[in-house]
Simulated assay, not measured.
Amino acid sequence: MTPADLSLTVLHAVRRAVDDGALRVDVPPVVKVERARPGGVGDYASNVALALARSAGRSALDVAGILEERLRDTPGLREVAVTGPGFLNFTLRADAGGELVRAIREAGESYGSGTALAGVTVRFADLTESRALIVAETVVRLLRSQGADAALRHHPPGVAGAPGDERTGDGEAPGGDQTGDQRITDERTGDRRAPAADQTHDQQIPAEHLHIHPAPHTPDLLGPDAARWALLRAAPQDRALDGAPLLVQHERNPLFRVRYAHSRARRLVVNAAQLGFQPSYDVPVPAPELLGVLGDHPLVLLAAARHRAPDRVARHLEAIADALLAFQHTVLPLGDEKPSAAHRSRLALAEAAGTVLAGGLSVLGISAPERI
């Protein structure tokens, strides 16, 4: 069970409690689930009972108890406990790692996409500044990954991040995700514009403004990947990163570390095939840090979309890379050791981590090379 699955499971428990009359509250659009903090119980926790207590006219402990009853015997959950003033705490079953790896392998690089923002429509105000365009089109991609209808209202021609920029040349963001409104060409003037119906619809939607510290987009100096990372890794309201350190192939360079970790995951699969075995998660792998950050990925993407903060994705990719690089040395057999179920499972976990890194980099519009 992934954190996103757990969030939906708790939300369904709230809905069932409302439907059967145990709670009289408005069902929230989403339930926040986060990793249990030091000193906490289990793997994940939620404060949903505290959030609903006032509107329910009951104590948070009462609300938590009602939800706990409806969460017992949930597949994937070993235990649900109520602690403190009304926190729900969840312990996953021992095979949770296998469920996570299977979910990542099934979804591929789209792992973390969802429908939490379905029905949400966002149009960003006209943008002309280079960094604002890069951040906005990345936020659009994040919002769309969570089911929202999002677009840039207008792309100034010839500005980085507009349709037809130098990264793809075809008006699409990496991965084929259109970053702005669909355009048609006026046969008389050659101008590209939105269809009239879409223009009318967009004009009825209040434009959202992004507050972004300006910075130049310099792919000619840094290359497209380092240029984007420099603009996206810092919080939008902060200064962009200095680009020069991003060109150094060293562990102190976070962009290099993330892309290197991805390439290591790919090479581990190749090296394992040369040794005669393939990835297959058959036995539990004691890698709580790596499993934890991979499980958090859907929640990070959703939070980044909601807060218009691509930097959250970049920081999370760094955490995955660090966990994977610390774990990689356990994957392949050493010396005369024969490949075992443990090696196949570790390889499956490493492969899944590489897939998540590739998907996260794609969301940021940055390439994930097979070899560095």
Rank of each mutant, 00 (worst) to 15 (best):
G86R: 02
T74E: 15
V30H: 14
V27H: 03
A56K: 00
D20P: 07
R72D: 03
A96N: 14
T74F: 13
L88R: 10
L23R: 00
S59P: 08
V27K: 09
G65I: 06
G39I: 02
L23H: 00
E34V: 04
T9V: 04
A22D: 15
A60L: 03
V25T: 06
V48S: 10
H12L: 10
L88M: 09
V48C: 06
R93E: 12
S55M: 06
A56Q: 02
V14T: 09
V33R: 01
A17Q: 01
I66C: 05
L50I: 09
L11Q: 08
S55R: 11
L23G: 00
G84A: 09
V27M: 03
L77Q: 15
R24S: 11
V25H: 03
R58N: 08
V82N: 02
S59K: 08
S55P: 07
V80N: 05
T9Q: 15
A22Y: 12
V82S: 14
A94G: 12
A60G: 15
P85S: 11
L50N: 08
A56M: 04
V10A: 03
E69L: 14
V30K: 11
V33W: 03
R16T: 09
E69I: 11
V41K: 11
R16D: 06
G86N: 14
L71F: 12
L77W: 03
R72T: 03
H12T: 10
G84P: 14
L67Q: 14
E68N: 06
E69K: 10
R35S: 10
V25L: 08
V18G: 01
I66V: 15
V18M: 03
D19F: 04
L23S: 00
Y44R: 12
I66P: 08
A60I: 02
E34A: 04
G40H: 00
G57D: 03
P28M: 05
L23F: 01
H12M: 05
K32Q: 13
L11H: 03
P38H: 08
F90G: 03
V82A: 10
N89G: 13
D62N: 09
L67V: 15
A94F: 13
V30L: 15
A60K: 04
